[in-house]
Design a protein around this nucleic acid. Sequence first.
DNA 1: GTCTAAATGAAAAATATTATCATTTACACT
DNA 2: AGTGTAAATGATAATATTTTTCATTTAGAC
Lengths: 152, 152
Amino acid sequence: MRPSYKSIITALKRHGHKLTLQRRAVIDVITSSQDHLTPAAMFEKVRQDHPGIGLVTVYRTLKLLTELNLICELRTADNCPSYTAGTSEHHHHLVCSGCGKVVDFASPRLIERDVAKLEGKLSRENGFRIDEHLLEFTGLCELCQKAQASSV
Amino acid sequence: MRPSYKSIITALKRHGHKLTLQRRAVIDVITSSQDHLTPAAMFEKVRQDHPGIGLVTVYRTLKLLTELNLICELRTADNCPSYTAGTSEHHHHLVCSGCGKVVDFASPRLIERDVAKLEGKLSRENGFRIDEHLLEFTGLCELCQKAQASSV
DNA sequence: GTCTAAATGAAAAATATTATCATTTACACT
DNA sequence: AGTGTAAATGATAATATTTTTCATTTAGAC
């Protein structure tokens, strides 16, 4: 389940962080959108309700939430990180290389089991302590496929 | 098999690109290193033999090689892209979140088969044309584990 | 050898992110 | 409710990374 506005607020409080209007605003935006948003996009959204907020605050809030593992950070080839609520649930990414759209999905238990095995093997062979894994598919979404087809 | 200096040169030629000293130098560095290198790191290496080369040229060459799919671009949480020779061989990444070290590995056929199945399902359900996939493990390498242990 | 489009390097611009610091504010404690 | 204090904010500057621009150079076809 995607973490709700409330659960994130609670977690922040639990870790001894202050609940400022600005943080609430950022959390509101991130939890009420299904998409992965870049810091800049989030800033624009938050701004609508809180004209005074600074981009810096958005960056700081995202950093904090990422450190507490309350949101999910994603980096793709377009160089901009984007964030979405929901790391409590383990999920993977399907990324459109055309427009950057990201679809989250849960992978079948079968794969997760195999991946866990592979994780053990890699860990032993390379001396790593492995903390997480991510499966990422890249391709073109429906719209970008059409755009490509019509431009050729 | 990792693409060799020669194979990349040939591919460039085939696509009608000129073989400048600078490009040769960058390709030499990227093929003779096992690691993923950032543009800046590559610049430093290339510079040793070609003091006159510009960082811009390194960027341009990496961009070109990436577009031609001759090298592999990787982005992790530290925000710096890094590149390595070798996309002709399908491989995955084990990334150290401490120092950024990347180990490439091939995943067992078992997983690849399941992933292919999942790929078909995702493609159908989301209307994506899926081009590639990447499995990425994140953790701490041996050195960074020790560093962490001793600092606590 | 000559020609030309492609590639380069220097500098500036654009973009993204972080650091600094004075001011404001949440909230623990009365 | 009022007060004190550490944490958080916003403005600004700084840093880092990547791209653009453009005059000059050069690889490679002829």
